[in-house]
Structures are given as C-alpha cells and as structure tokens.
Amino acid sequence: MKRIPAGVLIGLVLAGCGGPAATTHRAPSATEPSVKAAPRGTAAVERHPAPAVAPTVTVSITCDFDHTYSSYRDAWPGKFAMCDGTAIGTMDATQAKAVSVANDAAPDRLRVLGALYGVCAESGADAWSFLSLVTPDLVGVVRGALILCPDHPDRNLINKLLAVAGKHNRQEADGRIFGEGEFRVGHDIKPGSYYAEDVENCFWERTDVNRKPIADNFTERAKLVRVTIRPSDYSFISEGCGQWQPQS
C-alpha cells in the first residue's frame, strides 16, 4: 500500500475530505437550490473600514476654587477673574491650533488646552486688568484662548488691551521701556526723555564713559519723575523708580 505523507493527511482531515471512498453525491431537493461556485475573475466583496471616531474633548472648569462648570459660557454670568480648566480626550483642529498659538512647544498639550478653557471662562473688567503689561508669552496664551471662544463677551476689551501690551513689549525689546539696574546707553536702552510714576525713594544717575556721574537725583516720593538720557551718556542707573517709559 502506498503511504500518504502526514502533512497531506492532516490537510485532508481539516478540509473534511477522507478520499474518494468517503465522498457521497446527492441531488438537491426541490426546496434546496443548487450552489454554484463563483466564476473565476469575479471581484471580491469590498469591505469598508469602520468610520473614524470624531475628536472629542471633555472639559471641567473651576472658578474661584468652588464653582465648577463643563462649559466656559456657563461661567460668564459669575464674572470670575480666576478660572482653571482640565481637558481629556482627543483635540480637534481648532483646539490644536489654539494650543499651538499659546505654547507650541508644550509637552502636555491637553494641559495647555485646559488652561485656555479656563481663560475663556473668565469675564469682567477685573479679569483683564493685567493684560496691558503682560509678556509676549502671556499675550500668546490669551490669543490662543480667543480661538476657542471667539464669542467671548469681553473680546473687544481684550483685543484693545492686547494691542497695548504688544506695543509695550515692542518698546521694551527696543530698549524704550526699562526698570531698575544699570543700562548701557545705545546698547541696552535708547537715549531720549523718560518718566516714572508713583515713585518712592527713587534714585537715578547718568554717567560718562569713565563711569563718573554727569547728573543724578533722589526723590523721596512723587507722582511723576522725568529724566532725559543723552546719546553721549555712557550708562543710566536707576534704583527704586519702578518702570521708565518714553515720553510721547
């Protein structure tokens, strides 16, 4: 007898066929239709992948430590000046853009998104009083928040304050706004006329190239102090005067 290899035998068992002797033929009954194999070349049935799930973020906002909201709009009637938010889920394109404007390098982007929703929940004049003197980074945070809440009731006020902050930051970068310390004229700060407001124990000094005083002044208390820094000055020293701003 010819021996059938084990692999072929296993294949025949799994296929449900034991050889010609085990094959039984019967005609279909009147109620059983004949089954015909699909002709060669027939295209396979196309299977479509399941549709992708839309990005969804769940937000929780807490204002003044004991008021919790799921929507920033619900917080507006409270006129809160301090709110924070948390976000979980998958961001959509608008949320991703807001985070990029606020802090594109942030490693935890959902944490930034939650903070932006917290900014959106704040409202009222007291909430934005800090905006006129914010750093460029904070300007980006507020602009990112407005992408999320373009319908904010304080939007016009916020944009005006951001414009002031932008001008302030440009002048500071250009050496036209500065605080306390010693500054090289023409290098750290620009020559010109400046003023400081609401000073106490304010001392300033202009020096020459040998660091000797050209002029100085001490004011114990005043609403306004002025000084003119000349292009020929080597440095300007300020202590206790706060911030110097250019006279327009």
Rank of each mutant, 00 (worst) to 15 (best):
Q245D: 09
I10M: 01
D137T: 14
T68W: 05
L14Q: 11
L224I: 10
I189W: 03
A43V: 00
W128E: 03
F65W: 03
F183L: 09
S129N: 12
G16Q: 02
Y69P: 10
D92I: 05
Y72R: 01
T90E: 15
T31I: 13
A163E: 13
D92V: 06
R184P: 05
E205F: 04
A96T: 15
R176K: 15
K167H: 07
L12K: 14
Q243C: 03
D137H: 10
G242M: 08
E180S: 13
V225I: 07
F130A: 01
A6W: 10
G19Q: 08
P77L: 15
D104I: 02
T219P: 04
G240W: 11
R3M: 11
D233N: 08
A44M: 09
H48W: 11
R73I: 00
M91Y: 07
K190L: 08
E182C: 04
W204V: 14
H67S: 12
G19F: 07
H48V: 15
R176N: 10
G181S: 05
C120Q: 04
M1A: 14
G41Q: 01
E197W: 12
T86Q: 14
L14M: 04
T31V: 15
T42V: 15
R143Q: 13
C202M: 03
L131Y: 06
R221A: 11
T90V: 12
I61R: 02
G179P: 03
A127L: 11
T42W: 03
R211K: 14
H168T: 10
T42D: 04
T86H: 13
R109T: 14
L161E: 13
E200I: 10
T56Q: 13
G114R: 05
G181D: 01
V35K: 06
S100W: 02
D84Y: 08
H187C: 00
K167E: 13
R211T: 00
G11W: 08
A87W: 04
A44Q: 13
A75V: 06
A81Q: 14
A163R: 11
G240N: 03
V8N: 03
S238P: 08
V8P: 00
P153Q: 03
E205S: 04
T86C: 06
C202Q: 02
H25A: 09
H187V: 10
P150E: 02
G186F: 02
R111N: 07
A163W: 07
R47M: 01
D66C: 06
I158R: 13
V13S: 15
